[in-house]
Structures are given as C-alpha cells and as structure tokens.
C-alpha cells in the first residue's frame, strides 16, 4: 500500500494544476472560519453569524462537515484529471508495461482517494476544534466529543464521491467529459427527484427510492444543518411550522454509500481489465 501511495504521490506532487486545485481546496476549508466574521449591523438589527450558535459544540461538527463537503469538487477534479490523463498521456500503458498490475493501478488511485478523504477529515476536525474553542458557548470535553459521527459520515461521503469520479475517469478517459458526465448525472437525479416527488409520489415515498441512488445517498449522510439552529426553530415556531427532523447519521445510510463505493471501484477494475489499451 505504501509503495502504491508513493507512486501516486510522485505523480501528483509535480503536477501544477493538481497543486493549485488542492491549495484552493484547503484555503476554502480554512475560509469556513471567515463565516464567523459575517456581521450585519443595520440600526437596531444586529446579525452576527458566530453568535447564532453555529460554532457551538457539538453542532459545529454537523455544520462544518456539511459546508466543507461542498468544496470536495476541487479534489474530485484532481482525481478525475489524474486518472483521465493516464489515458491521454498513455502513461497507463507504460505503467502496466513497467510491471504495475491493473489491480495495483486501480488500488493506487483508490488509495489516493482514501488519503484525500482522510486528510480532509483531519483538516476539518482541526478547523472545527479551533473555531469551536474560540466561539462555542460550551467547551466541556464531554460535549466537544459528541456527534463525532458526522466526521465519519464526511469521510465516507468523500470516499464515495471520489470513487465515482475515478470510475467516470476510467470509463470516459477525458477529464473534462468525465466531470461533465458527473454533473449531468447529478442533474438527472436531482431534477427527476423533484418531478417525481412533486407530481407523483410525494417526498416520503420518493425518498424511500432515492435513498438508494448515488447522489441522494451521499447527501443523506449529512442532512442540512440549518433547521437545527435555534434561530431557525424560533422563526418556524412563529410561522406555526414544526422543523423537527431526523438529522442523525444512520448505519443504513453509511451502508448504501459504502455499497456504491465498492461498486464504483469494482467496475473501474473490471473496465480496465476488459479493455485493450
């Protein structure tokens, strides 16, 4: 595993585009901290995001993993382009001739996806701990370390997303088209979800089906955190709405996403194995 990782790292570390994308990604993760400084003072209305409690433990785990997950697209582009470029530079062929097996090739890419997800998770953990210690109203260790399953969910969500990108990179062999294909698949799933839920079955029943689809299953891992905020709840209460919802990370949500991950990696391997280069 270390050999494969060092091979993959050697490929990435000299690639300028990848380095830029990775830097942007981590800058964006740090920029979550900037949310803290959002402040409006319009006469008597004072709006300070940090004081709404978004950085309170343990809520911060939910909020930060949710926000950080949006930035994963930058790492996806690194994975997809590093994979597709192996085809366009024909270096995949050369790697195999030099003695890398097809299995090792896919594994090295998968290990890269795992490392990206792991490093991101550690990074988000650190950013959240620091922000929490600065802004949280509660800093007792028992409270700090509850709800850490959001970090696990974040990690798995990233791994699955990157594996999807890896598969499309292997399938389509062109990075731009692979990313575009992913966007199209996302839109199909997203739009059809609203058409079906709106016109035919309603949200509950549609959710029961769509929880098995790739994008929705990844989305389900970390539900949107906004409705948990006390401010949102108060607002809803005034309007007579009940915002109580199930935001926990469930084992079956994790299982579905892991299932997709395994499928994407397996299909990538099968595809590579069957293909003549």
């Amino acid at each position: 595993m270390l050999r494969l990782l060092s091979i993959e790292f050697q490929k990435i570390k000299h690639n300028k585009a990848s380095k830029v994308l990775i830097s942007i990604y981590f800058l964006l993760l740090v920029s979550i901290a900037l949310i803290a400084s959002i402040k409006f003072d319009i006469g008597s209305i004072k709006f300070h995001l940090a004081e709404l409690g978004i950085f309170n433990f343990p809520y911060i785990w939910h909020f930060n993993t949710f926000v950080a997950a949006f930035f994963k697209i930058f790492l996806l582009m690194v994975i997809v382009s590093m994979t597709a470029n192996e085809y366009s530079n024909k270096t995949l062929k050369q790697n195999l001739i030099d003695g890398l097996s097809k299995k090792e090739f896919i594994l090295s890419k998968f290990y890269m996806a795992l490392s990206f997800a792991a490093i991101s998770t550690v990074f988000v953990f650190l950013v959240s701990i620091v922000l929490g210690l600065i802004y949280s109203s509660y800093t007792e260790p028992a409270i700090i370390f509850t709800d850490l399953e959001f970090l696990l969910a974040f990690f798995i969500k990233l791994v699955c997303f990157f594996s999807f990108g890896l598969f499309l990179g292997v399938l389509i062999k062109r990075s731009a088209f692979a990313v575009a294909a992913m966007a199209v698949l996302f839109l199909i799933e997203f739009i059809s979800y609203f058409i079906i839920s709106g016109h035919y079955k309603g949200f509950d029943e549609t959710d029961r089906i769509y929880q098995f689809l790739p994008f929705k299953s990844m989305w389900n891992l970390i539900d949107e955190p906004g409705s948990r905020l006390s401010a949102a709840k108060e607002l809803a209460a005034q309007l007579g709405e009940d915002l109580t919802y199930d935001y926990a990370v469930h084992w079956y949500e994790i299982a579905i996403v892991l299932g997709w991950t395994a499928l994407f990696i397996f299909l990538s391997y099968r595809l590579l194995k069957k293909r003549d280069l």
Binding site: I7, Q10, K11, H14, N15, K90, T91, K93
Partner: peptide, 14 residues
C-alpha cells in the same frame, strides 16, 4: 509515454 510535466529524473524515479 511519460508524464509531460515531470523531468527525466522524476519520470525515471516513478
């Protein structure tokens, strides 16, 4: 077939 963005030495290291 080599990685165009790497030098000769870097490619051979790989």
């Amino acid at each position: 077939n080599f990685y165009p963005y790497m030098t000769a030495t870097q490619n051979l290291k790989l």
